[in-house]
Amino acid sequence: MSDPAIVVEGLAKTFTLHLQGGVRLPVLRDLSLAVFPGECLALVGPSGAGKSTLLRALYGTYLPHGGRILVRHHGELIDIASADPRRILAIRRDTVGYVSQFLRVIPRVPARAIVAEPLVHRGESEQAALRAADAMLARLNLPERLWHLPPATFSGGEQQRVNLARGFIAPYPIMLIDEPTASLDAVNADIALSFIEEARVRGAAIVGIFHDPAVRRRVATREFALAPLAEAA
């Protein structure tokens, strides 16, 4: 087997709520896993088990309180948990993509520019990036008259298609995916799942949350179970 793309060792995450008298909510404790290129790991477990927390920790949004999160970035294993912000930004540009549940709308920026942005950040010309964006939006059946409009007024399903187009436009070696099909109809959900399959076949290491068992059976190659800590103890 090839070298792992993600190695998590002894990860711990506790939220301390200072405004609620310093209540401590342990969510992850001593969690270890490895993900290899060409794998799609589905995180499973009841709500509150820490699936989203783990995904956000892998992206550097949540700060762990123990353990390491190693990701392979340009051939080198880097610890996200202790990397400085500039390094994390470089990792997000080149290595780790994140497909969230909802699009974060930016006022006045048209759909195709939102989709093209990850390629522009990687140094592609704006023209080439916009062409690639148009191709993604066409594949997701977003009507062409919407491409030049800011998505603030789009329906939930249309916004999510913009979000997916943006998330999958760059060939990240690692992809983190949170409920990609939640607000899509069957036809577009099917296209979203083929994006995931294509990414895996080209060798991406994928970690995702897929609540629908049928979706999970189709895209996941392995499952990783999480349980709420109180019950696990």
Binding site: G60, T61, L63, I88
Partner: peptide, 21 residues
Amino acid sequence: AGLTDQVLDDPQHPYSQLLVS
């Protein structure tokens, strides 16, 4: 101090938590 999304989505200091909330 930190990455924008880290400070706004997982603020650590009591004052940052107050600002975000």
